[in-house]
Design a protein around this nucleic acid. Structure first.
Lengths: 259, 259
DNA sequence: AATGAGCGTTGCACATCCCGCAACGCCCCG
DNA sequence: CGGGGCGTTGCGGGATGTGCAACGCTCATT
């Protein structure tokens, strides 16, 4: 839309492939050298482009700083909430959002079930890390040594007969979760409560959060809950796309409002 | 230098602080809404800016992709080599550059000593990981669980009486190295050879490579070699600045050519 | 249901600001 | 000493970005 800016921005992907000198930039842009020079200068003043001592240009530190700052100021909750609310609206069940932080998994958002029977959980409360679906999803994505370290340091309380009994079983479960891209908790925390969850990923593919749908089996059976898995996964994927600022716009309403 | 581009780029740091709508962007830029709209559109087309469903703008995925691609295509060797050569020129000793990769530390560049007595090493050759200064620097920066995992899995060959004897001693040494920001190998690999090394860091502060100066003590004593530490460190810092695309230009010649 | 405010969007005429040209300075190499 | 390559500068013409005003839309209010 704006020719000048358009040209200037076209320089960035060009430089991402490796350093280039003025002539190369001008040529690949299809403009005169003096034009390329002025654009590069402007980019340079903003720190997006760096000049190394052989005079060639490459991407500058500011770019990394910007990306980092943007990530830090990104709140998964803000972005996820409407999707969680929509899913709750559609299914009627409790929806959770959780993140991993320094050895703990914590709920950061929750949309309550419409049904009178509710499960006990609270935003900010550490999750039952050895059994919860969201915990499995978040831990499954940790680098292998850290995953082992965490698994080894945990206690494995036998909440129910179906609770994860020990580190070995937990690591095996995490491998499965990692493989299949979703997780469940079928009565592992409280006998009568089941969950299905899916991961939310950032632009780099790392899992930044996890969401789950929970329901007591007096309301729906485990099978019925599992039938919701596609919806849970597509919601998580929609949140991932939006969170990572994906250019694929794929109208969010499709996921949020449709059946 | 170019007004249009200048304005467009000024939007980025603004959005890095958090999402903003058209009005806010126009106001903080000091331009008419329609102008801001055109700039944002251009940024949007290039994927640098993303529009979330509440219509507000925030930084887009392309920014992260660019930063990532730039980092991947950045070759430490290209950037470091002139600095290594200059340091070799000044000291006369062998200079090494090494990186950590999947459990191994490998030499990726080397500038040979001017002296007839040379130490045996080869580019691409895995480093004696338990004793070399560069290995200590690289491992010291790993996240704690991975560091422990690597230390536990290593063998500790007694090359000399001064070699690192076991994992416990190694981890203790790594802690020291991490603390002081430099490392040595005083006869730990070959009786007569000493090294001093310093880390090279990327934009995010993580150690991306390590360099060292090595000399047999028939040429210089360990004390004389240690006296070079300031030069080694400032060279490593200069490389770090350049590698991370630091806007602080701080003329590289000062480090490369001066005494 | 009607009204109005707030916001994003559009078309247009003006003049600003960017473009390409050509010439210059510099460094390196023959 | 002379030539070629590269980055840099000043300048006039004109394409291009700019601000204005008006429109349409959504949403909250009456």
């Amino acid at each position: 839309m704006s020719q000048t800016v358009d040209r200037a921005l076209s320089i960035l992907p060009l430089l991402a492939q490796g350093p280039a000198d003025l002539g190369q930039v001008a040529e690949r842009l299809g403009v005169h050298k003096s034009t390329a020079l002025r654009l590069l200068r402007t980019l340079h003043e903003h720190g997006l482009v760096h000049r190394q001592q052989d005079q060639r240009y490459r991407l500058g530190a500011r770019l990394f700083a910007l990306a980092q700052e943007a990530v830090e100021n990104l709140d998964v909750r803000d972005i996820a909430h409407p999707y969680l609310a929509a899913l709750n609206e559609r299914t009627g069940h409790t929806v959770h959002l959780a993140v991993y932080e320094e050895g703990e998994v914590v709920y950061i958002d929750k949309v309550e079930s419409r049904y009178p029977v509710r499960m006990y959980s609270r935003i900010g409360k550490p999750v039952a890390i050895t059994v919860a679906a969201v915990a499995k999803l978040l831990l499954a994505d940790l680098p292998e040594p850290e995953r082992r370290a965490v698994a080894a340091r945990l206690d494995y309380p036998p909440y129910t007969p179906r609770s994860t009994p020990n580190a070995a079983a937990f690591l095996k479960e995490l491998a499965t979760v990692r493989e299949q891209g979703w997780a469940t908790d079928l009565g592992g925390h409280e006998e009568s409560i089941n969950c299905v969850g899916a991961p939310i990923r950032g632009a780099d593919g790392r899992v930044v959060a996890a969401m789950s749908v929970s329901a007591p089996n007096v309301v729906v059976t485990a099978e019925e809950l599992l039938a919701l898995l596609p919806q849970v996964r597509s919601t998580a994927e929609a949140i991932s796309r939006e969170y990572s600022g994906s250019p694929a716009v794929s109208d969010a309403k499709d996921v949020k409002d449709s059946a």
